[in-house]
């Protein structure tokens, strides 16, 4: 059975002693770090029957296969990140052999080195905010004087009319609640921006993707200038959470990182057997 060349990503040409000893996708072959045009590629051999173009396409429809292998891909990149800057490639970047990989890297070698310079010292973090709508709306209602007054007025109506008035009010409250959540998220985002070199506002995930009961109301990727900028950002997020707990219960801000630079180091390699970049 033939073998192909799976590439995780690129790291600078650091000394061999600093390279982590890792296992490749098959679980026993080591991850190798050949130097190509002055940069190291992190790669491993993979079986052709699993990673050739057609097979890979079929496997990518298998959620279990994706979960296992994509997690491995991430783990390797994460290990590399402990010692140096890493330019990740998309999961499933495969070449026929060393020469074809080298050929694909050639046109991008300067771009990759430029990215190393740009990203060294910085950290990519993900910040997500979740809202427990019921909890948030209940607290929001209690804090708004105008709403208290409307509620009193509704209480004096006959039962049938009360129904429509309450529904109308609920609708209005939801609208105002959504606007408030959005305002709070934007405010946090703006206060983090000065600490970053780049930010990406991302689509919020639906509940089946996040696996949470609460609604995701903010999703952003942040490239913090330095480790201390990331620490400062965590303090700001902590303050945001304290303030939310006091005034707007139901909001939860979560920061995770540092991540491999999935959002800020996009490299589109050509001549791959699969989708590069």
């Amino acid at each position: 059975m033939g073998q192909l060349y799976y590439v995780y990503g690129f790291i600078p040409d650091i000394p061999e002693r600093d390279l982590p000893e890792l296992h490749g996708i098959d679980g026993f072959s080591p991850v190798e770090y050949p130097v190509v045009y002055g940069l190291r590629t992190a790669c491993c051999p993979v079986p052709e029957d699993e990673f050739a173009e057609d097979a890979l396409q079929t496997n990518k429809e298998n959620a279990e296969w994706i979960k296992e292998n994509a997690f491995h891909h991430h783990q390797v990149l994460n290990e590399l990140l402990q010692n140096s800057v890493v330019i990740p490639l998309a999961f499933g970047t495969v070449y026929e052999n060393y020469e074809s990989m080298k050929g694909a890297v050639f046109p991008h070698k300067e771009e990759i080195k430029k990215l190393f310079r740009k990203l060294t010292g910085s950290e990519e973090w993900s910040i997500k905010i979740y809202a427990d709508r019921r909890k948030f709306d209940d607290a929001f209602v209690k804090n708004e004087d105008e709403i208290k007054k409307i509620k009193e007025e509704i209480g004096e109506m006959p039962r049938g009319r009360q129904y429509f008035a309450l529904k109308k009010m609920e609708e209005e409250l939801q609208k105002r609640g959504r606007a408030k959540v959005s305002e709070l998220c934007k405010k946090l985002h703006e206060s983090l921006k000065p600490l970053t070199a780049e930010v990406q506002e991302k689509k919020v995930w639906r509940k089946n993707l996040s696996g949470r009961r609460e609604e995701m109301v903010w999703n952003g990727a942040y490239l913090f200038n330095s480790h201390s900028s990331a620490e400062k950002a965590l303090e700001i997020i902590h303050e945001f959470q304290d303030n939310a707990d006091r005034k707007y219960p139901g909001l939860t801000a979560e920061a995770s990182g540092p991540w491999p630079f999935y959002h800020f180091a996009e490299i589109q390699l050509s001549e791959t057997n699969e989708e590069g970049g």
Partner: peptide, 13 residues
């Protein structure tokens, strides 16, 4: 009519 409709919807809910 509004009162009766509201009452019915209340009960249904």
């Amino acid at each position: 009519e509004t009162e009766r409709l509201g009452e019915a919807l209340y009960n249904l809910e």
